[in-house]
Amino acid sequence: MIRIRGLTKRLGTKQVLDGVDLDIGKGESVVVMGRSGTGKSVLLKHVIGLMTPDQGSIEIDGQEIVGLKEHDLDEVRKRFGMLFQGAALFDSLTVGENVGLALREHQRLDEREVRRRVAERLEWVGLSGVEDMKPASLSGGMRKRVGLARAIAMDPQVILYDEPTTGLDPIMADVIDQLIRGLQRRLGVTTVVVTHDLVSAYKLADRIAMLHDGKVVFTGTVDETRHTQDPLVRQFVQGSSQGPIAV
């Protein structure tokens, strides 16, 4: 479904991505983990075409998206949903307008159908009846759930999550994790999560990839990650400041 090869990106003087290779299968849930600042979010933004790589290739269902024109890229993006780190809700719109924006922009649905779908998606994330609220009046957890409802509004084939549980209390983080896993099973969507939260990673992943120094240095199942002898992964999993990962 998603095939990344030799992806490189330099931002300023820093080589953020330095030859990333990663395959993500259809319907699979892959968690990309790594320390803060290792380029996890940058990788995610490349997958949806928000950033252009210096070199490398990204194929979505066999279609190369690097070098596509914005218009063609938009057609690819319509198959994606994305939850941003801070939810990135539009402050000037209500919750209902946020969730229904893509539907109103891209699908010729009558207003009643848009409202029905918005209410349904909000119900899926456990937030019925908040359509008229403004994002500013929502808590952090509610914002993430509204962001999630917005990400699934268009029935995407792939959902990208950028640090979905960062800044949430452990209980709300678990609620979000369960929602993500539930949606993946319910909709059969391909899921890519970037996080440095190991608890979430173990709950969400079919497969975990670790990003370090701009490269994917490890991929494996949750069990393989837990029991690997790879010193980089072990240091990260154990949360130790001693080891090959320089602090």
Binding site: K45, I48, G49, L50, D74, E75, R77, K78, F80, M82, F84, Q85, G86, A88, L89, F90, D91, L101, A102, E105, H106, R150, M154
Partner: peptide, 15 residues
């Protein structure tokens, strides 16, 4: 909107 990734969110929604 730019610094809170709302512009990126628009582009991600093909808007």
């Amino acid at each position: 909107m730019k610094v809170t990734e709302q512009i990126d969110a628009l582009r991600a929604m093909a808007i």
